[in-house]
Amino acid sequence: MGNSLSPSVRSRQPASDWNELLNLAFGNMTNDLRFRLRRGFAFAASLMIAGHALPDAGQVETVKIRVDPGAVVSRISPDFIGLGYETSAVAQSNFFSVKNTRMVHLYRNLSRRGMVRIGGNISDHTKYVPDGAATVHSEKEVTIINQANLAELAGFARATGWKVMWGLNMGTSSKEEAAQEALAVRAALDGHLHSFEIGNEVDLHNGYDVKYHGMLAFVMAGKGDLLKLDLDKGAINLAAYATKPGRGLLWITVVNKDLSRDAELEAILPKGYHTATAFRLGAPSVQSKDRVTFAGAEVAADGTWSSGPAERVLMKEGVARLPVPHASAVLVRLQD
């Protein structure tokens, strides 16, 4: 993956802000379920996935899942997915640019309706100078954004279909400078401006990074209705979620967060569903930082990605059975 896609996705907003964001995404879900869903997919995204070695005897937990396709908890917004960057990324020539075809491909793999958040600590030390020389600095030194930078960002947004949330400098600039910055951003982005963030995060509570292959997994299964799911998992550290993107199709996402125990999954197929296939997050070991795959495929050097063939799931008497090794995740597709 290299450094071409370097999101800074850190939950440093107050808890009330995160509640509001999750309310928008998940509607009337309970607070506990909102956070478990977000954290579950985030964990799947950040895992360095273990390989598919056969589990050792005595270390396997049987996990039973039952899904009710009619029990809708909420609906996942089609533009739910997003990435965040420090403002200094915009000052880098040819980064947010149609010339950066690899990153355009990486974004298109994920969605044509996502959101890029530009802000972070550096936004409070950024100045907009229309004809100035773009300057990239670390925190507390002044980063300069110019009109050409905004034009490049706008071209990138049009090429990917994503919208932009822009963080205004309310820390070290005047209100007049912030207003000038906002007008320039709005004019450049036009229909690809999502919103403005008025000032940077107000606390320094660290969160987590979202890894790209896990985001690919979320994009595959994280659509449509979020369903109620009954999970019998014993003591193993495992989470599961069910979604229904359309008629005749269900997804079950299982994240085995346990670092020592493997799971033997038994998913009871709802009435009318007859086939099951699976896609896995995989890597040579828990420590691996390369050769990570999702659905049997790596992201290519140019940023493109295509799913490999689905894994056939053993079916017997209306129950889908498959192993979920420790520190791994699997997406199970149920079809009628």
Rank of each mutant, 00 (worst) to 15 (best):
G2K: 10
N3S: 08
S4C: 02
V9E: 15
S11C: 01
P14Q: 14
D17T: 13
W18T: 10
N19Y: 07
L21G: 11
N28I: 09
N28S: 15
T30P: 03
D32T: 09
R39H: 12
A42R: 11
A45C: 04
A45S: 15
S46T: 07
G51A: 10
H52R: 06
P55Y: 02
D56M: 02
G58L: 07
K64S: 14
I65W: 11
D68M: 00
G70P: 04
G70D: 15
G70C: 09
S77P: 05
I81M: 14
Y85T: 01
Y85M: 02
V90Y: 03
Q92R: 14
N94W: 07
H105N: 15
L106I: 13
L106R: 14
S111H: 07
R113D: 12
G114R: 08
G119P: 06
G120M: 03
S123D: 09
H125T: 15
H125W: 13
K127Q: 05
Y128H: 11
D131K: 12
D131V: 05
V136C: 09
H137K: 14
V142Q: 02
V142I: 13
T143E: 07
I144S: 12
I145T: 03
G155P: 01
F156Q: 04
A159M: 11
G161C: 02
K163Y: 13
G167V: 00
T172D: 08
E176I: 04
E177I: 01
E177K: 00
A179N: 05
E181V: 06
L183D: 14
A184F: 08
V185I: 09
R186M: 07
R186W: 01
R186K: 15
A188I: 01
L189V: 01
H194M: 06
G199A: 04
V202C: 01
D203C: 09
H205T: 13
D209S: 13
V210G: 03
Y212K: 05
H213G: 00
G214S: 03
M215R: 05
M215Y: 02
V219L: 09
M220Q: 15
M220G: 04
A221F: 01
A221K: 12
K223V: 06
K228P: 07
L231E: 11
D232C: 14
K233Y: 01
A240Y: 00
Y241D: 02
A242W: 03
K244N: 12
R247A: 12
L249K: 03
L250H: 13
V255W: 01
V255D: 08
D258P: 06
D258F: 05
L259W: 12
R261C: 03
D262W: 09
A263E: 07
L265G: 09
E266N: 05
L269I: 08
P270H: 11
K271A: 14
H274A: 15
A276Q: 10
G282V: 02
A283M: 12
V286W: 02
V286G: 00
R291G: 04
T293I: 10
G296I: 11
A297S: 15
E298K: 12
A301R: 08
D302N: 13
D302E: 03
S306I: 06
K316L: 02
E317I: 00
L322P: 09
P323N: 11
P323M: 10
P325F: 08
A327F: 08
A327E: 07
A329S: 10
L334W: 09
Q335K: 04
Q335M: 11
